[in-house]
Amino acid sequence: MLLLIPLVAMQFTQEVNWTFSDFVFAGVLLFGTGTTYVLIARKWNNLAYKLAVAVGVVAGLLLVWANAAVGLVGSEDNPANLLYLGVPIVALVGAFVARFQPLGMSNAMFAASLTYVVVTAIALFVWTPAPGTAEPSAYFVNVLVANGMFAALWAVSGWLFRRASAASSHLGQRLA
Rank of each mutant, 00 (worst) to 15 (best):
N45K: 11
N45V: 05
L47A: 08
K50C: 13
K50T: 02
K50Q: 14
V53K: 09
A54M: 05
A54P: 00
V55Q: 00
V57S: 04
G60R: 04
G60Y: 03
G60S: 01
G60I: 04
G60M: 03
L61Q: 04
L62D: 00
L62N: 02
L62M: 00
W65V: 05
A66I: 03
A66M: 08
N67I: 10
N67V: 04
N67K: 11
A68M: 11
A69I: 02
V70R: 15
V70W: 13
G71L: 06
L72V: 08
L72Q: 00
V73Q: 01
G74R: 12
G74A: 15
E76G: 08
N78Q: 09
A80S: 11
N81L: 10
N81C: 12
N81Y: 02
N81D: 08
Y84A: 09
L85R: 07
L85D: 06
G86D: 07
G86R: 06
V87W: 11
I89D: 11
V90Q: 05
V90Y: 13
A91S: 03
A91N: 01
A91P: 01
L92I: 11
V93A: 11
V93W: 15
A95L: 02
A95W: 03
V97E: 06
A98L: 10
R99D: 10
F100T: 06
F100G: 09
P102G: 12
P102E: 06
G104P: 00
S106D: 09
N107L: 08
N107Q: 11
A108V: 06
A112N: 01
S113C: 14
S113I: 15
S113E: 13
T115H: 12
Y116R: 12
V117M: 07
V119W: 00
T120G: 07
A121P: 07
A123D: 02
A123Q: 08
F125M: 06
W127G: 00
T128S: 04
T128N: 02
G132H: 09
G132M: 09
G132I: 12
A134E: 05
S137F: 07
S137G: 01
A138N: 06
Y139A: 05
Y139V: 00
N142C: 04
V143Q: 11
L144C: 03
A146S: 09
G148I: 15
F150Y: 11
A152M: 13
L153S: 12
W154E: 09
W154F: 14
A155Q: 10
A155R: 07
V156N: 06
G158M: 04
W159G: 05
F161H: 07
F161R: 08
F161I: 14
R163V: 12
A164W: 15
A166G: 09
